[in-house]
Amino acid sequence: MGGTASAPLVVLEGIAKGFGEGEARVQALSDITLSVEAGTVVGLRGPSGSGKSTLLNLIACILEPDAGRLALAGETVWEGGRYRRRDLRALRREKIGFIFQFHNLLPFLDATDNVALAMTLAGTGLAEARRRARDLLDYLEVGRRAAAMPAKLSGGEAQRVAIARALANRPRIILADEPTAALDSERARVVMDLLRQVAREQRAAILVVTHDEKIFDRFDRLVSLRDGRIESELVPAKAA
């Protein structure tokens, strides 16, 4: 896994990505250079079409870059026009946790098993996975809802369970796509404080795509994208 306390866990160097061919080609990202250190929460903001989601997909190894270098948790994943790693799903299982806009909990599993599933996919036995899942839910203060089905959870509870799932395999990198979009201001701040707590305590690098101005002050750094390029990079106090 690698990565010291100050070593960057996400490294992008000169990353570029375009879609389409010829005159129809759209350059979604150009010359993106960015690093996220352990223990920090970085926000990615920008107008629609600025390249936020593309950047998140690239880091998640769902989209392949056209150029540049991508390194995750000390391992160069993409460089020189190809992936250096074959099994990208295993990479995601081992190194990356995901938090979604609408939590994306599996509706047919209760809160405990939604969290335990991520661990069983990584090879943990079911009993052990469930025990750890309950610990995680307790840690995120939603343990009393461990047996509830997702449909019975409030938005805030569901997002906490989703965060627990993202943390299940102790990933060094957490990618969050608009995690507070479906929450009111207070719950949004609670969720962001939780992410900050996770980043500090688990030495994780957290990258959050957001439009939500209410939570800008919760980031260690706020990166603004426009037209596929990094427009600015600010610390929250200055961003406000």
Binding site: R89, F100, L106, P107, L117, L121, A122
Partner: peptide, 16 residues
């Protein structure tokens, strides 16, 4: 489809 996409994203193997 969304659940399957989520499973893939969190690393589920094709056999799952």
């Amino acid at each position: 489809l969304r659940e399957i996409a989520t499973l893939k994203l969190i690393g589920a193997r094709d056999r799952t």
